[in-house]
């Protein structure tokens, strides 16, 4: 009987080793990289009082680089906001907002500091930004406000755009 009990104990020890081995082989740490590789600055629209609003117009957003304009947002209809990339290595970004109801566009100037962020070498590097100051012309825009100066891939709102009349 005791020989049998000893044999059972040996068998259970072998089974324990096998289970531990399988668990060890199957367990792996994983790295989940952010889906978006480009970090964007998020603009949200509101009316003059500060309540969230929808723009009652069609909007196109260009960025100025090297004297030429490139369209980043095209024909935004009844939008509540937009997201645009920021320049990695420039100190100030220039955005031009073209309206359909207003003849002349608005220009937004955004001063920012950029820095490289590495979450994990397997994911590569990202460019984050700290917003320093924002200014604009006042054709359709009443004023701008920085609500979150840190621009990263978390996706939170960064700048509030207060429109004069055609945002509801």
């Amino acid at each position: 009987m005791n020989k049998f009990a000893t044999a059972i104990k040996r068998k259970r020890r072998r089974q324990l080793f096998l289970v531990l081995f399988l668990v060890l082989v199957s367990a792996c740490s994983t790295v989940t990289c952010p889906i978006d590789t480009v970090v964007k600055c998020n603009y949200t629209f509101c009316d003059v009082e500060g309540a969230d609003a929808v723009l009652q117009d069609t909007l196109n957003v260009d960025v100025r680089k090297g004297g030429r304009d490139t369209t980043l947002v095209s024909n935004l209809v009844s939008g509540s906001g937009f997201s645009v990339a920021m320049s990695y290595y420039n100190r100030v970004d220039t955005l031009i907002l073209h309206y359909r109801q207003i003849a002349l566009p608005d220009t937004i100037y955004v001063w920012h500091d950029g820095y490289t962020h590495v979450e994990n070498p397997e994911c590569g590097s990202y460019r984050f930004h700290i917003l320093k100051d924002v200014r604009c012309t006042e054709r359709g825009i009443d004023r701008l406000e920085i609500i979150n100066p840190k621009v990263d891939y978390e996706g939170s709102g960064n700048i509030k755009v207060y429109f004069n009349s055609f945002a509801e």
Partner: peptide, 20 residues
């Protein structure tokens, strides 16, 4: 120590290496 070749700006262009 962490360093790398940096990331290229897809819109404005340019690339800067980093060294932490």
């Amino acid at each position: 120590d962490m360093n790398g070749p940096g990331v290229e700006d897809p819109v404005w262009g340019g690339k800067e290496p980093f060294d932490f």
